[in-house]
């Protein structure tokens, strides 16, 4: 099991131009504690810049934490990075982390060498991995001719070349089309459930995290703002409904009346004005009540629709709750 507590990371950067550059410290990660169990998929959800990649890089020993502790199966991971490296691997979204001038087979062979995989088992492992990611027929073609999806699949094979106990995936489906993403998600499930790997997955897609993860951490501005099992978060965070309502006239008084009346159906409902729209957030389907209420109050509806919840909105809402 991985146990990380109060991890923080500051970057020293220089701002300004020329010789008069000032040093500045950026707190990319402020305080993150998390646990990863073997056979389970843990999700790290956050918008761009929340600190997901920095967290993953600390957990994969690429960056030394500025503060905090990190243990892997009772071994101090900050002290013994070389031991940790043998037991983990990482896969990032995008087309990096493989050699474009080598073939798929040569890539896996080279990574096999630097991970010291015994040559007696390396050949078979490469063949299995190529089959797993569906690149069997393409193994002798240089990677530069591969499509984005193929490169990404090769990267997954690379991430498994040392048969890691823990696997870190940083936005692995970014830039992939729907079909390939879906395939990838089923691979990830397979690795946790059938191969008993502990997996940490970051994403800014709520649905992806919700679908895959057993336990979820929501990250904003370098801090955890919410955590729980997928089921817990589904009920009070992910599965809330958003409605946008536009009226011919709008006032604070109208907002207050809507708020008051809708809370009779669902006490968690929130009504807020946003320019010429009214946005309504509820845990239940209240579309019928909403339109009935408008008729009853004599309000003319110009437009009304339900909106798929966006991560940004959810995060804003959660951070308000945290600071309140």
């Amino acid at each position: 099991m991985i146990i990380a507590e109060h991890l923080a990371k500051n970057f020293q950067v220089k701002v300004g131009k020329g010789i008069f550059r000032e040093k500045k410290s950026i707190e990319a990660v402020k305080d993150i504690s998390l646990q990863i169990e073997k056979g389970k998929i843990v999700g790290l959800l956050g918008i761009n810049g929340a600190g997901k990649t920095t967290t993953i890089k600390m957990l994969t020993t690429l960056l030394a934490p500025s503060a905090g502790t990190y243990f892997m199966d009772d071994m101090d991971a900050v002290k013994y990075p070389m031991e940790i490296k043998k037991r983990i691997n990482m896969i990032a979204g995008g087309e990096r982390m493989i050699y474009w001038r080598l073939t798929a087979y040569e890539n896996l062979w080279y990574y096999g060498q630097i991970y010291n995989v015994p040559n007696s088992i390396l050949k078979q492992r490469i063949e299995e991995l190529l089959a797993l990611v569906g690149l069997e027929g393409k193994q002798n073609i240089p990677v530069e001719t591969f499509s984005k999806g193929m490169k990404q699949r090769l990267q997954i094979a690379r991430g498994l070349i040392n048969d890691p106990e823990y696997l870190f995936l940083d936005e692995p489906t970014i830039g992939l089309d729907a079909v390939v993403s879906k395939e990838l998600r089923s691979h990830i499930k397979f690795l946790a459930q059938e191969k008993n790997k502990g997996i940490l997955l970051t994403s800014h897609y709520m649905r992806e995290i919700e679908e895959l993860c057993d336990y979820i951490y929501i990250l904003n501005d370098g801090c955890l703002i919410k955590q729980g099992t997928a089921r817990e978060l589904a009920a009070d965070t992910f599965n809330r409904r958003n409605y946008i309502l536009k009226l011919y006239e709008q006032s604070d008084d109208i907002l207050a009346r809507l708020d008051h009346n809708l809370r009779q159906y669902d006490p968690t409902t929130e009504v807020s004005g946003d320019g010429d729209c009214i946005s309504i957030n509820s845990s239940e389907n209240i579309s019928l009540e909403l339109s009935r209420l408008c008729t009853q109050e004599g309000l003319f509806i110009r437009e009304m629709y339900e909106k798929e919840p966006e991560l940004e909105d959810t995060i804003i809402k959660l951070s308000k709750e945290v600071s309140a």
Binding site: T60, L62, K85, N89, R96, Y111, Y115
Partner: peptide, 13 residues
């Protein structure tokens, strides 16, 4: 520059 430094440094070599 070719984007393989991190995957290289992940390995204990």
């Amino acid at each position: 520059r070719e984007g393989t430094l991190e995957s290289l440094m992940l390995a204990p070599f």
